[in-house]
Design a binder for these strands. Structure first.
Length: 269
DNA sequence: CTTTCAGCCTGACGGC
DNA sequence: TGCCGTCAGGCTGAAA
């Protein structure tokens, strides 16, 4: 499912493909995803040029020549393709943007958790997001101060977009394992040194995942249909009952905030 | 204020 | 064979 590295991978591909293209026609096949998509039909997109592609957290936005933007979120099953018009429509493709080079930008989402909407260029929907994890603003001191204010569980804070934006379930699990911290640690018991270590692990894992083109767990595909290669590098996610790759202890699973969490009871404190 | 949790949606899978 | 329950999961908004 697309998290930050997958959104980055999609954004990078779309930047190469879409910038300079003009939208000539819009087709909508489904009434709604996370929000209704019918407004795309009456938004006056025809004739506009795509002038930029921006990723923020797990969102990707296409900047338009009239100052507005098309904001996308991939939910957990969103797939974007840019293909020739001769390719038949797939079952769960919901929106087509026909381009001036004859290709079609296609948005597919099996589970319809995705978002695709026209909004103003300053992206007000994203104003509540916290710091980007791959910027200098995300460091041990910042995370420590955020955690000090919370009695919630550490993993839930790491996945809280108001604190740090774009770290989802897979990479939260992997980062906590790499940092040797239990996902169910109470946030305000984590030391500044541990925060420093965790920040470094988050950055390192996200960067490696971006280099690998993301993780293809269940539904994620890159714009060209290829799978991300990071899935095979996952150390802890999905490995309940297996041996810890570091110490050999049995990996445990628990639920936090309704989501599966995996950890090594020996390596993670 | 903070924290938790149901609901959205489809398909895969296991048990009977 | 098919039916039912469970799981996957980001995000929202309501409840506690």
């Amino acid at each position: 499912m697309p998290e930050l590295p997958e959104a980055e991978t999609i954004g990078n591909a779309l930047r190469r493909i879409l910038i300079g293209r003009r939208i000539v026609k819009v087709e909508v096949f489904s009434p709604k995803m996370r929000e209704p998509v019918a407004p795309l039909l009456t938004a006056g997109l025809e004739g506009l040029r795509i002038t930029g592609v921006v990723r923020r957290a797990r969102y990707v936005s296409l900047t338009l020549s009239d100052g507005r933007a098309i904001l996308m979120h991939f939910g957990m099953s969103g797939v974007v393709r840019v293909e020739d018009a001769s390719v038949p429509k797939r079952k769960h493709e919901h929106v087509f943007l026909h381009l001036d080079d004859g290709k079609i930008f296609r948005f597919e989402c099996t589970r319809r958790f995705s978002l695709l909407k026209v909004t103003s260029g300053d992206l007000p929907e994203l104003s509540g997001l916290g710091v980007e994890p791959l910027t200098d603003g995300f460091d041990g001191r910042y995370l420590y101060h955020a955690l000090q204010r919370s009695k919630s569980k550490l993993k839930l804070c790491l996945m809280n977009n108001a604190i740090v934006a774009g770290v989802g379930n897979i990479y939260a699990n992997e980062s906590l394992f790499a940092a040797g911290l239990r996902p169910d640690r109470v946030a305000n018991t984590v030391s500044e040194a541990e925060c420093e270590r965790l920040c470094r692990c988050v950055k390192s894992i996200l960067r490696r995942a971006i280099e690998a083109g993301g993780s293809s767990i269940s539904d994620f595909l890159n714009v060209d249909g290829s799978e991300g290669k990071f899935a095979r590098e996952l150390q802890i996610y999905g490995r309940a009952g297996a041996k810890c790759p570091v110490c050999g202890a049995t990996v445990e699973r628990c639920r936090l905030g309704g989501r599966s969490s995996f950890f090594c009871p020996k390596c993670q404190k």
